[in-house]
């Protein structure tokens, strides 16, 4: 059985933001909410590196552990999802998440936060797959359609890989062997407790 993971190959990522835009387009994520973003280290100087970050769908997800209403669940393929009907927008998960993935759209009145929104690995939520209501609350369910996350599918350089952890690791390993240098599986240790 597959264990879904993300890996961003920093040697290939060019900070083009295709992943970010693909996600916005696919799920019509509103202005101000970013399920995915690209971060750059050493901007503008030698050693500059970018990686694309979203929810990593951690093994033993810290967000789930802190949720006061227990609205998180993990699918059989290891995708961490949550139920927006239960979510109270408290913001705990944001503080627990090592990647800053949870996002909260502003509600109109008194700066109250809306229900949490985050990357779903393009797997929708706990509603009928690809129904209109699932789309409105969680965005599209590509996994149910037999497709992979659009951000990775559209990555300009195939830096961002999404899919079964072993397959991803294989590809990445081949690349590293070919080009040499130090493998850097950004974020894997925090998310999956493993480095490759």
């Amino acid at each position: 059985m597959a264990r879904m993971k993300f890996l961003c190959d920093a040697e290939r990522c060019i900070e083009c933001n295709s992943c970010v835009t693909a996600c916005k387009n696919e799920h019509e994520v509103p202005w101000g909410v970013n399920r995915r973003r690209v971060v750059t280290l050493n901007d503008g100087v030698p050693g500059e590196k970018s990686i694309s970050v979203a929810c990593m769908h951690c093994t033993d997800a810290p967000c789930a552990a802190v949720c006061p209403v227990d609205c998180f669940y993990t699918t059989d393929d290891g995708i961490v999802l949550h139920d927006k009907d239960l979510c109270i927008g408290c913001g705990y998960c944001f503080y627990a998440c090592p990647f800053g993935a949870p996002q909260y759209p502003q509600q109109a009145a008194f700066g109250v936060r809306g229900k949490m929104d985050k990357c779903t690995f393009c797997a929708g939520g706990p509603l009928q797959d690809n129904s209109n209501v699932e789309y409105e609350k969680y965005g599209r369910n590509r996994i149910a359609e037999g497709k992979l996350p659009l951000c990775a599918e559209m990555c300009s350089t195939k830096a961002l890989l999404a899919g079964d952890g072993d397959m991803i690791a294989d590809i990445y390993r081949q690349r590293v062997l070919k080009r040499g240098g130090r493998p850097q599986t950004w974020g894997w240790e925090s998310a999956y407790g493993t480095t490759g």
Binding site: C16, N17, S18, T21, A22, N25, L150, M154
Partner: peptide, 23 residues
């Protein structure tokens, strides 16, 4: 919706931010 055109020999499904938003 937009899907990757992985059959294209030019982009193999990929896009940049602009291409990913043409819808």
């Amino acid at each position: 919706g937009q899907e990757p055109d992985f059959e294209s020999p030019f982009n193999l499904g990929s896009h940049c931010a602009k291409g990913a938003s043409v819808r």
